[in-house]
């Protein structure tokens, strides 16, 4: 897993980086929950999800090159993850909203990729089972927070609204993946809308992307918290150039 040597097409490389960075960055964020969970059972659940994502990330990055060089030695602008996954954990509602948006997207995407002839098909077929559970977990919590107490509903609504503007980017074409992105977006919207409605939440009405035309995560343009996250993630590895761990 540590050395990926098989040459892959540049377009697939782009896609592997995008999908691999998504998984890596979200795993890193979820890893921050250790010791902070609202209840012990939930720490175990979030760690399971993080471990699945980390496994996916390692697989995808290894298609491109050395997983550690890619994770630890690239600069911020070289990361291709969407901005949604780099958003800070916030309260538990923010984490759940981020999980709902992302795992719904990821499940739909890998479901489709599993049926393609791309180098991602085998990974996608395996990942989709893991992700189905992540989505299920996010849905169950969305229902409980949305339809729980007045406080939890308010927090969940706030989180749902706050992350909404990072969801448009998910449906920008990635590399040359043979996916109908418009259809993917429609399916995503239908699925998320249904969950939010069942959770007695209001589907956000705001724009699904930021107003900044400079670009977004897939082009290497990230949000402020991402730099700090990377600094923390990379500093030890970079302090010992060439060392093995």
């Amino acid at each position: 897993m540590e050395t990926g040597t098989a040459p892959i097409r540049p377009a697939d490389r782009t896609a592997a980086l995008a999908l691999g960075d998504d998984a890596l960055v979200l795993a890193q964020r979820l890893g921050e929950w250790a010791g902070h969970g609202p209840v012990l059972e939930e720490e175990v659940a979030l760690a399971n999800i993080a471990l699945d994502l980390l496994g996916q990330a390692r697989h995808l990055l290894s298609l491109v090159g050395n997983e550690d060089e890619l994770a630890y030695l690239r600069e911020e602008r070289e990361f291709r993850n969407c901005q949604l996954v780099e958003q800070p954990n916030g309260d538990f509602a923010h984490t759940i909203a981020r999980q709902l948006y992302f795992s719904t997207y990821q499940e739909l995407l890998h479901n489709r990729l599993a049926r393609t002839g791309t180098p991602f098909a085998p990974l996608s077929a395996k990942a989709v089972k893991e992700i189905a559970y992540h989505r299920d977990h996010a849905e169950h919590w969305t229902l409980r927070l949305g339809d729980g107490t007045p406080e939890s509903r308010e927090r969940m609504q706030r989180a749902t609204d706050a992350l909404w503007r990072y969801t448009g980017e998910l449906f920008e074409p990635v590399g040359e993946l043979p996916v109908d992105w418009t259809e993917l977006n429609d399916s995503w919207l239908a699925s998320v809308t249904s969950v939010l409605e069942r959770a007695t939440l209001t589907v956000p009405e705001g724009p699904r992307r930021g107003a900044w035309t400079a670009g977004a995560g897939r082009e290497g343009l990230h949000t402020e918290p991402f730099g700090r996250m990377l600094a923390e993630m990379q500093h030890l590895h970079r302090s010992h150039p060439g060392a093995s761990w």
Binding site: V39, E41, V44, A45, N48, D136, H137, H140, R144
Partner: peptide, 20 residues
């Protein structure tokens, strides 16, 4: 054993805790 608010969550927690 474990704690959970309802049966559905109990099932999920059990999966996470006892079948890792």
């Amino acid at each position: 054993s474990l704690h959970a608010p309802d049966a559905e969550m109990a099932l999920r927690n059990a999966r996470d805790l006892y079948t890792r």
